[in-house]
């Protein structure tokens, strides 16, 4: 296995408040990697730093061994990104959004196939605003895959979805994993991490608390499932 993402001592503070505090981890090719933590733990900032959207105070983040701040074009032909709570233009239709995103890449995937893969083909001519939460999230994953990426970043993908819609998104992600795509996701749903992730990193107040396979992480705690183990690592009361 080769590491395709490497993060070393990544640190960032805003107005004197340390948001990401010396985080180190790596992601291997073909795995589903989960970055877990409470709201405000620094998950999105870590992704922003890793993607080169923000400049780290110190430390490095590389993708395919390249610094995203200086190799943006090369990296983003091969990496797909879905940002947390992103929205789309008013009045835009699904097919128009797909065409617009396709236009940004040299060799885009046929978007009809992606829509089909995510069971969205019947919405091709619908307005994006009219889709349900689950349909819109599936669309945002489809859009993140439009450049046939080797790595896809999904930030808080299923926040706000009901259980059925969330499971539908999971099913698609599992199929994606079978195809060999590396998936980097952040979530604060432990059930989601347990169902999807090969390896996880838990962060609290910007620092890494633990890392390993889901099984390791549970075994190293006094508890039986990830949710309780997570709360224990976070230093909170576990109520049985």
């Amino acid at each position: 296995m080769n590491a395709c993402i490497e993060v070393k001592d990544l640190t960032k503070s805003f107005n004197g408040r340390v948001v990401v505090d010396g985080i180190t981890f790596h992601v291997e090719e073909g795995e589903v990697f989960g970055l877990l933590g409470h709201n405000g733990a620094g998950k999105s900032t870590t992704i922003d730093l890793l993607l080169g959207l923000k400049k780290p105070d110190c430390g490095t983040g590389t993708i395919f061994g390249l610094d995203p701040r200086t190799n943006r074009k090369a990296i983003f032909e091969r990496v797909g990104v879905q940002l947390q709570s992103s929205n789309y233009q008013n009045n835009i239709r699904v097919d128009e959004l797909c065409k617009e995103m396709s236009a940004l890449y040299k060799k885009p995937e046929d978007y009809h196939r992606l829509l089909q893969f995510f069971s969205l083909e019947k919405f091709e001519k619908s307005q994006v605003n009219k889709l349900s939460g689950g349909e819109r999230q599936r669309l945002s994953v489809a859009l993140a895959l439009i450049n046939k990426p080797e790595i896809v970043f999904l930030d808080e993908l299923t926040t706000g979805l009901d259980t059925a819609a969330r499971r539908e998104v999971w099913r698609h992600l599992k199929e994606l994993k079978k195809k060999g795509t590396t998936i980097f996701l952040t979530t604060h749903y432990m059930e989601e991490a347990e169902s999807l992730c090969d390896r996880i990193v838990l962060i609290k107040d910007g620092s890494k608390v633990t890392e390993g396979t889901v099984k390791n992480v549970i075994e190293n705690s006094p508890y039986e499932n990830l949710e309780e183990a997570y709360l224990w690592y976070m230093g909170e009361e576990v109520t049985q």
């Binding site: 990496v79 940002l83 940004l104």
Partner: peptide, 21 residues
Amino acid sequence: ADYRDKKILKHFFTTPCSPMW
């Protein structure tokens, strides 16, 4: 302002194209 608010401009940073497009 609308595109900034909706993170559409930010999203262009995660593509090979510049938000200038």
